[in-house]
């Protein structure tokens, strides 16, 4: 890690820690919390789709499975929500294995179709098992996370924020460790050229499955966190609206960059909140943003930022010489 990166990361960490001192109103803190939740979702989705090139449209299903698992276990069986966080992640891993084992021998759009279909199956199951899940009304009165008198829900947004920040940091570090390992190298080769990667000793099935499963764990954990934070989880979690918004976060931020989808999560959540008054047109506007990015900046915000920094450096060098 070079000096510039260490300084940048330290600066970001300092800002992240000081945010609650600056942002004091509850609504803004809630939006920030949602930004961080989706930053975890988008960066993990990027691991399977952006880095490994798996057209995984079941990613929000992992989020939903984590949320419902932890919510049901805490509400109906009295299990500790803290244990529920891990069990949410574990349930997401099991789900990813259930989907991935038969699916990931397929390629390209077939994976997209199968994984999307599986998400719709889960949606139907949530509606069918309404005694357990609350059906279309959702699962409400989910117990929040709590340590002593500190409740991580409701008005106590600062506590929620710091806990979430810790989960976000652990998830992001885990992604970086994977991406920089030989496993991460295998992911990138499979995305770039699967046949060539296979000819170089990489088992496409094994590594695509690893990408799929690893990306599901923290998505399940954050789904569980989300359920305990809002104290309610609804079937919308498996719907097209959230899926398309999260997809936009990954693509607008920059596929295969980890940092990009995190930026994309903040950007799209803020844009989506800003566009809330447009009601039904909100998704249309999100679609237009996605279209514009795909056409004019396919590398996303991350790529735009990097080329901006490169140009600024050149310009500074030019003036320094003069």
């Amino acid at each position: 890690m070079n000096r510039a990166t260490i300084i940048s990361l330290s600066l970001i960490a300092a800002i992240a820690l000081l945010v609650p001192a600056v942002i004091t109103d509850s609504y803004s803190m809630h939006v920030l919390i949602i930004c961080l939740v989706f930053a975890v979702v988008a960066s993990n989705w990027d691991l399977s789709m952006g880095h490994a090139g798996v057209f995984n449209f079941a990613h929000l299903a992992f989020f939903g499975v984590g949320a419902y698992t932890s919510g049901i276990l805490a509400k109906l069986f009295g299990l500790s929500p803290w244990l529920g966080l891990f069990l949410g992640g574990f349930a997401a891993v099991l789900t990813s294995l259930l989907i991935g084992l038969p699916t990931l021998r397929l390629r390209g759009m077939y994976v997209a179709i199968f994984t999307f279909a599986f998400t719709q199956v889960l949606l139907s199951l949530v509606l069918i098992w309404s005694d357990l899940t609350g059906g279309s009304f959702g699962l409400s009165d989910i117990p929040p996370l709590q340590i002593g008198s500190v409740v991580f829900a409701g008005a106590n947004k600062v506590a929620v924020y710091y806990l979430l920040l810790a989960i976000f940091l652990i998830s992001t570090c885990a992604i970086y460790v994977v991406v920089r390992s030989s496993v991460g190298l295998a992911f990138v080769t499979l995305r770039d050229s699967q046949d060539y990667a296979v000819s170089r000793g990489i088992s496409a099935y094994r590594y695509r499955l690893i990408a799929f499963v690893v990306s599901s764990f923290f998505t399940g954990v954050i789904g569980a966190f989300y359920a305990h934070y809002l104290e309610v989880v609804t079937v919308e979690i498996f719907g097209w609206n959230i899926l398309s918004l999260a997809l936009a976060m990954v693509i607008v931020g920059g596929l295969g960059t980890t940092r990009g989808p995190i930026i994309g999560a903040f950007f799209m959540t803020l844009v989506s909140e800003y566009l809330r008054s447009f009601f039904a047109y909100r998704l249309l506007l999100v679609g237009i943003i996605l279209f514009l990015v795909l056409v004019f900046a396919p590398g996303g915000i991350d790529s735009l930022a990097r080329s901006g920094i490169r140009r600024s450096r050149k310009l500074l060098g030019f003036f320094a010489k003069r």
Binding site: S182, L185, V188, D192, S193, G201
Partner: peptide
């Protein structure tokens, strides 16, 4: 058994070194 392809193929987002290292790591 290692092969090359008639249509030149590589991993465009990796460096020359990383492209080469793939064979060493997984082979």
């Amino acid at each position: 058994i290692a092969r090359t392809f008639q249509i030149p193929t590589l991993f465009p987002t990796l460096t020359y070194f990383e492209n080469t290292k793939v064979g060493a790591v997984f082979g």
